[in-house]
Nucleic acid binder design. Structure first.
Lengths: 243, 243
DNA sequence: TATAGTTGTCTATATCAATAAACATTTAAA
DNA sequence: TTTAAATGTTTATTGATATAGACAACTATA
């Protein structure tokens, strides 16, 4: 873990250090001991006071990633990064499903609305045409992985919210509505800092990073059936594109 | 631009606000006027003091994104986000090339070394086999877009650094070395906070986000010819995956 | 030439972030 | 039972961050 922390950047040192340790844990840097190095060692490594390191560790403990035990050291509690393959047949459940014991997909809310310019472009319909909108959260072993907003053409998939709520699966919901197969047409990926709403919904550390995908799924004739903007907790996932 | 800023997160308010404004500019939120809203309006919007907004704007001015003019307002100087398609035939120059006036690819350093476990897995060779390693920076219109570390099997592509330095293109360098075509096999995408070295190399705002790709290119027989880890300035690029 | 609207500067104060040094408490091993 | 090594607590001090209010300087427009 080379490289020093930066001062006067608007990002507190304890937060930079917390981010670095979280990343090191996720990369398996402390797998031999299962513990974070002693506070004094970290303080020396980062060139800061021990109290600053303690603030960082307190933040990681708050996230449930480590647990400090007096006299022993700081134990690593959780170490995860889910892999999410993006392919022509991208499905959440088969992509992440095998990597976690329990998968949940929750429908937070839904509504019928008119397509705005962005949605219309994604679904290749005219702006103003009716679409069904769903807000969902997906969890792996109880931990939120992503928030998503998805739109479907209302005429064809008006029953989507109901079917999704029952099946907890886009694929199964599509099947119930008569669409047995679909493919991923395009995926757009960006990264931003999480805003307040997503920080709460994804149970993130404040100021955390989101990976954002904008995806279009089509039926086998190439007609768009779903446009979705998903927001992933960047420190819990990675994407893999296989060509 | 809904949502308030968060306090006591280790990320200074002026920095959160700078990030939000930068993003809003990039999304085209102020295209009508070409100006950022007045400081008093922003202060009200974000629920902070005007001085805090001024700190944010000062940071953006430092980055060259806006320019504050007394009596007039704060003008938007630069507004960019390059699109980077990831396909079977992913090439940097054809992907980004058309979106910028001038493209440069600079070789910072290179060396011959033994493949470590990660590189060996990528190139499907045995750990310890000789590889050529190159550190490169790619720029669009003078602004750094990405830093990359690339490895090539030394036996086959020992001349890579020299060819790359002359041609400023992986594709052309491969061609010179007898490989007329290659395809992208896998791409892995993650996001992290930039460390000090990348902040400097990419001329980033401190604490900025990096999009990281780990990619393997193979020849037409499927033999790996390149393994590369690229680090992109997240607020300057987006990836598009077409299936 | 006023005037409204904007950015620039100044002073003062409160809170958060970071350092420093010393000591207490707990754990594990000698 | 010591002892070393680790985390926990306390106090004090400094610098960065944020708020508050007032006023100056500049621009565009009525």
């Amino acid at each position: 873990m080379a490289g020093q922390v930066q001062r006067q950047t608007g990002v507190a040192l304890w937060r930079q250090i917390a981010d670095r340790i979280r990343q090191a844990i996720s990369a398996g840097a402390y797998d031999e001991t299962g513990m974070v190095p002693p506070e004094t060692v970290l303080a020396l490594q980062f060139g800061v006071n021990r109290h600053t390191v303690r603030s960082a560790i307190a933040a990681l403990a708050q996230e449930g990633i480590v647990r400090a035990v007096q006299g022993r050291g700081t134990l690593i509690e959780r170490k995860e990064r889910l892999n999410f393959p993006i392919t022509k047949r991208t499905r959440f459940t088969t992509g992440i499903g095998e990597q976690a014991r329990e998968m949940r997909a929750l429908l937070l809310s839904h509504s019928e609305e008119k397509a705005d310019a962005d949605v219309a472009r994604g679904l290749k319909i005219r702006p103003g045409e009716p679409v069904v909108r769903m807000e969902t959260v997906r969890k792996a072993d109880g931990r939120p992985v992503s928030c998503a907003t998805a739109w479907f053409p209302a005429a064809r998939f008006g029953g989507m919210p109901d079917a999704y709520k029952r099946t907890e699966s886009i694929t199964k919901a599509f099947a119930e509505l008569g669409l047995s197969d679909y493919v991923r047409a395009t995926t757009e990926i960006t990264a931003v800092h999480a805003d307040e709403a997503d920080t709460a919904a994804l149970e993130l550390a404040p100021g955390a990073i989101l990976l954002i995908t904008k995806a279009v799924n089509t039926d086998l004739e190439g007609v768009p059936v779903q446009y979705a903007i998903s927001r992933f907790a960047a420190d819990r996932v990675q994407f893999t594109i296989e060509n």
